[in-house]
Every structure is written in structure tokens, then in C-alpha cells.
């Protein structure tokens, strides 16, 4: 079960981060933004936009698979680790320096997910116990 969550969230985060980075790449390559057909054509000519859409589709299938077993409340919260992975990917790829509050927020999110991982361990142990 723990392996299922680990692999599931790893896939979800990879797809989500891939989609966000690809959207940013698309937007930069198709600049300047304008609500006209030329802008849409510039977007459609970008390979990045198709990678972004693929990322979204992959994330959708992964999320539904996770929800087959995971409770939606904690899982939805845990999926917000995406905020942290996108922050670091943006730093690495685009050189966007995260400021101190952003790093503090990222720390809180990571701490929350560690607590959620422990809570799953506890739930599993209790389920094991009640089964005798």
C-alpha cells in the first residue's frame, strides 16, 4: 500500500510539474501574448504545448488511479507538493530565485506531507491490528 502511494504520487508530481514547465516554455516561445489567431498559431506550432497537454492527461489518469484507494481529503492536500516541485524546477530551468517566504511555505508543505505519510503508516498498523 505504501509502495502504491509512493509510486502514484511520484507519477502525479512528475506529470504535473512537466505540464507546468511546458506551459511556461510554450508561453515564452509564443510571446508576445495576444488574443488573436497569430498567437494561437504560434502556440499550436510549439512542441511544448503538446507536452503540456500530455502531462495533464497523464496526471488525470494517475489521480483517478490514486483515488481508487486513497482518501480524497489527505490525497488532495498531499498533491500540493506540486507547488514545491514546480518552485524548484523553475529555479533550476528558468533561474527563478524563490524568496524566503516561498521557501518557508515550501518547508511547511513538505512537513505536512511527512506528517501525512506517518498518519498512513499509523492507519495501516491499526488496520493490521484490528484484523488480529
Amino acid at each position: 500500500m505504501r509502495k502504491f502511494y509512493l509510486i502514484g504520487f511520484l507519477f502525479l508530481l512528475s506529470f504535473d510539474t512537466l505540464a507546468q514547465i511546458s506551459f511556461k516554455m510554450t508561453a515564452e516561445a509564443a510571446a508576445p501574448p495576444a488574443l488573436d489567431s497569430a498567437w494561437f498559431l504560434r502556440i499550436a506550432a510549439q512542441p511544448w504545448v503538446y507536452l503540456a497537454i500530455s502531462g495533464y492527461i497523464g496526471a488525470f489518469f494517475t489521480w483517478i488511479s490514486l483515488l481508487r484507494r486513497a482518501p480524497v481529503g489527505p490525497a488532495f492536500a498531499a498533491a500540493h507538493l506540486e507547488v514545491v516541485t514546480v518552485m524548484f524546477a523553475s529555479f533550476w530551468i528558468f533561474g527563478e530565485q524563490p524568496d524566503l517566504p516561498r521557501l518557508a511555505g515550501a518547508g511547511l508543505i513538505i512537513a505536512g506531507i511527512i506528517v501525512l505519510a506517518f498518519s498512513e503508516k499509523q492507519q495501516e498498523a491499526e488496520a493490521e491490528h484490528s484484523r488480529g
Binding site: G73, A77, P101, G105, I109, G112, I113, V115, L116, F118
Partner: peptide, 22 residues
């Protein structure tokens, strides 16, 4: 879905972190 204290703390920390980032 059961809301154990650990789950509440974990979800609360994530929500706080998202608020601080934003």
C-alpha cells in the same frame, strides 16, 4: 474518511504552506 489528529496536522501544515507561498 477518518480524520485522525495526524491527518489534521498534516493537512493543516500543507494548507498553511500553500497560503504562505501565495
Amino acid at each position: 474518511e477518518s480524520l485522525t489528529p495526524l491527518r489534521l496536522i498534516g493537512i493543516g501544515l500543507v494548507a498553511l504552506g500553500v497560503a504562505v507561498v501565495g
